[in-house]
Design a protein around this nucleic acid. Structure first.
Lengths: 203, 203
DNA sequence: CACAATCATGAGCAATTGCTCGGCTTGTTC
DNA sequence: GAACAAGCCGAGCAATTGCTCATGATTGTG
């Protein structure tokens, strides 16, 4: 149904510069508010207030609260180039892993709190789940291919290894970057690369 | 202040068997409801309904919603004995790591969804944060001691390694167990132990 | 069996939330 | 500069939520 498909889509296309600017202000305000208060406590009124616009204007561009989160998530997933880094199977294993780790770190560096909210507190709508599942599937597929084809890789259980490597990078980067000052991102990258590369080489 | 200290504590001590039973029903119902709907959407009325009691009865035992979550978290942390396993520094490294990994897996096996809610969506109250911080500090201290003293350990950056190992176990176990059927817990344990042990031995 | 302590009930209050709608302001077009 | 469109406003509605409190039912005790 058309109504169903448009549940998360923008209400109207901006035609003036002013409007595009307002859209952007809503998005950045939402990102901050969600990061600070979480999804449930990040009220639409607060987002509007933070964006310096009225609540009415907000609903001119987003049909509901979920739609704002959906656009935030979409943009984030689109900006993530980590899956591509896994395709260069002719390079040394360490370089590939490093590129992968670095891509994930970079991608989460803007606002790790927001990212955790996106993945943990996002409403369980079919659309959002499918979007995230597809993204994860791409990473898993590429990683699995890499493990199967790269000459340096010798782990036995490729299936478990794929899951382990993927979630190790994904889930250790979040909390470690989230605690500021505690952990140096460069050190983290170094140790992660060492750990994963060594692991994948073991017979 | 007494009022402040009692914010999360049970409203009254049960004196009859019936009451203790009601308390238990509330807790298990809350665990399920929170796991299903998340913290914010896990309403107290829903919890009461699921427990098969009235909303009034619920508030006889818990002064507010946070208190229920607090007790759930406390029980979970108290059941977690993973920190102790890190103390046996005279045993082979692999055995120690395996015991640690297994303890975490066991502890999260009941309901991994709930655990993520506890750690991610818990209200940012000072009490709860302090409780979790203390638990994490204990693990980090023990792990750091192990890395410093165990003869098999040769990683350079002990600080980063401590954080990396701790959060690798903590955060990869959650999502991997949460996807039922996808990953075999025994395989996960095997690969995790291999990866971490090999990593810690590298010069 | 009386009578008090304990336990259970659930209608409904106060506060909060997502969101609408009618009217206003700013920009565009001819 | 008139007439229309695009964008903006914010009071307030409907729904939901955490939680209270006056009342009634159960249980233990002498």
């Amino acid at each position: 149904m058309a109504a169903e498909q448009r549940r998360l889509q923008p209400r109207k296309q901006p035609r003036q510069v002013r409007a595009e600017l307002t859209r952007q202000r809503i998005l950045t305000a939402a990102a901050r508010v969600f990061a600070e208060h979480g999804y449930a406590a990040g009220t639409t009124n607060r987002i509007a207030e933070r964006a310096g616009i009225s609540i009415g204007s907000l609903y001119q561009y987003y049909p509901n609260k979920d739609a704002i989160l959906a656009e935030l998530l979409t943009r984030h997933l689109e900006a993530d180039r980590s899956a591509e880094t896994l395709r260069h199977q002719e390079e040394p294993l360490e370089d590939i892993i490093r590129a992968f780790v670095r891509a994930v770190i970079d991608n989460h560096h803007d606002d790790p709190r927001l990212l955790r909210i996106l993945s943990d507190q996002a409403p369980r709508s079919t659309e959002l789940l499918e979007l995230m599942a597809q993204h994860q599937r791409e990473i898993h597929t590429n990683l699995h291919d890499l493990l199967n084809n790269h000459p340096e890789v010798h782990v036995q259980d490729k299936h478990t290894a794929t899951h382990l490597v993927a979630s190790t990078v994904e889930y250790t980067v979040h909390p470690l970057i989230a605690t500021p000052g505690e952990i140096n991102p460069t050190h983290l990258e170094e140790e992660l690369v060492t750990m994963l590369t060594t692991y994948l080489r073991t017979r």
